[in-house]
C-alpha cells in the first residue's frame, strides 16, 4: 500500500501560552515551542502500522517554510520512508482550498492508495482532507479512529461520532481519511532516531515543480482571509479564589459544601 500523510508544523498549544501581538497581525511566535500537529502524528503512526502489516511505503508531505523540514524529519525518524517539503513564497496566505490544491498536484505526481491527514490542526478548521478528496473525486471519511485493510481495493474504517459511538464504513481505494486522536499510541522518537535520518535528502517542491498556477494558491487564490488575531472581551468569568493556599482551600470547601460537592 502506497500511503501519503499530510502533516503540519504548529505551535504546541499545550506547552505554550498563545498571546496576540500588539498590532493583532499575528500571535507572538518568538518563544513558541513548535512540534508536529497532534492529529497528524497519529496519522503517521497509523500509516507506519499499516505498511508494516501489508507492505508498501509511507511518504510524509508538508507545506511550510524552512523550519517545516524538522517536522518532516521527525516523522521520518518515526519510520516514514520518504519526505516531501512543499515550499514556495506563492503558498503564503493560502486558505484551506489553496492547501488542498497544492496537495492535489502532489498526489497526481504519485500513485497513492491511501491519503491521510489529521482531523484538524491548530486553527481548528478540519478542512484540507475533505477538500482534497473532493478535488480528486476520491471517497472521504472524517474523524477516523479505526482502519482495517480488507484487500487492495477496499478498507474498513470506523468514524468517531457522538456519545463515543463508532460508525463503521467500507470505503474504496484510493481514498482520503482524516484521522482522529486515540486511533493508536504514537511511538516515541528519541534523539537517536532523529540522528539516523539527519542527513536524508528531503526534496523541496514549489509551484513550478508541481505545475500549479501561482494565482490559484496563496493569498492570491484565497477566498477566505484571516484579517487579524484578537483576544475577545472576556465575560465575567469565574470568581477567582485568592489568598494563601490554606485560605483558598477553606473558601473552596465552604463553597463545595454549600453546593453539595462534598458528600
Amino acid at each position: 500500500m502506497e500511503i501519503l500523510v499530510c502533516v503540519k508544523r504548529v505551535p504546541d498549544s499545550s506547552e505554550n501560552e498563545i498571546e496576540v501581538k500588539g498590532d493583532g497581525t499575528d500571535i507572538e511566535r518568538d518563544d513558541l515551542v513548535y512540534s508536529v500537529n497532534e492529529w497528524d502524528n497519529y496519522a503517521v503512526e497509523e500509516a507506519i502500522q499499516i505498511r508494516d502489516k501489508v507492505g508498501g511505503t509511507v511518504t510524509v508531505a508538508s507545506v511550510g517554510d524552512e523550519e517545516t523540514e524538522e517536522v518532516i524529519r521527525r516523522e521520518m525518524a518515526m519510520g516514514a520512508d520518504n519526505g516531501i517539503h512543499l515550499m514556495d513564497d506563492a503558498f503564503e496566505g493560502s486558505d484551506g482550498k489553496g492547501l488542498a490544491t497544492t496537495l492535489k498536484a502532489l498526489v497526481e505526481q504519485g500513485s497513492y492508495d491511501l491519503i491521510l491527514t489529521g482531523a484538524q490542526a491548530d486553527d481548528g478548521a478540519g478542512q484540507v482532507g475533505g477538500m482534497l478528496a473532493a478535488m480528486l473525486d476520491y471517497p472521504f471519511a472524517s474523524l477516523v479512529n479505526l482502519i482495517e485493510v480488507v484487500d487492495d481495493k477496499k478498507i474498513k474504517v470506523g468514524r468517531e461520532i457522538a456519545g463515543g459511538n463508532q460508525e463503521m464504513n467500507e470505503i474504496d481505494l484510493p481514498c482520503v481519511l482524516s484521522i482522529q486522536t486515540g486511533i493508536n499510541e504514537p511511538r516515541y522518537v528519541g534523539i537517536r532516531g532523529i540522528r539516523k535520518v539527519a542527513s536524508v535528502e528531503i526534496p523541496v517542491k514549489g509551484v513550478s515543480d508541481l505545475g500549479i498556477d501561482a494565482g490559484v494558491v496563496g493569498a492570491a487564490g484565497a477566498k477566505v482571509k484571516r484579517l487579524d488575531y484578537f483576544v475577545p472581551e472576556l465575560g465575567e468569568g469565574a470568581e477567582m479564589l485568592e489568598g494563601s493556599t490554606e485560605e483558598i482551600i477553606e473558601k473552596l470547601i465552604e463553597l463545595l459544601k454549600a453546593k453539595g460537592g462534598i458528600k
Binding site: 486558505d95 482531523a119 478542512q127 477538500m131 473532493a134
Partner: peptide, 23 residues
C-alpha cells in the same frame, strides 16, 4: 460543526465552488 458537518462541508464547498468557513 460536528461529526456530520465536518464530514460533509469541506468537500461540498469544493463541489459548489463556494468558499468554506469552518467552525
Amino acid at each position: 460543526h460536528e461529526h456530520f458537518g465536518m464530514d460533509l462541508a469541506p468537500g461540498l464547498s469544493i463541489k459548489l465552488d463556494a468558499a468554506y468557513l469552518p467552525d
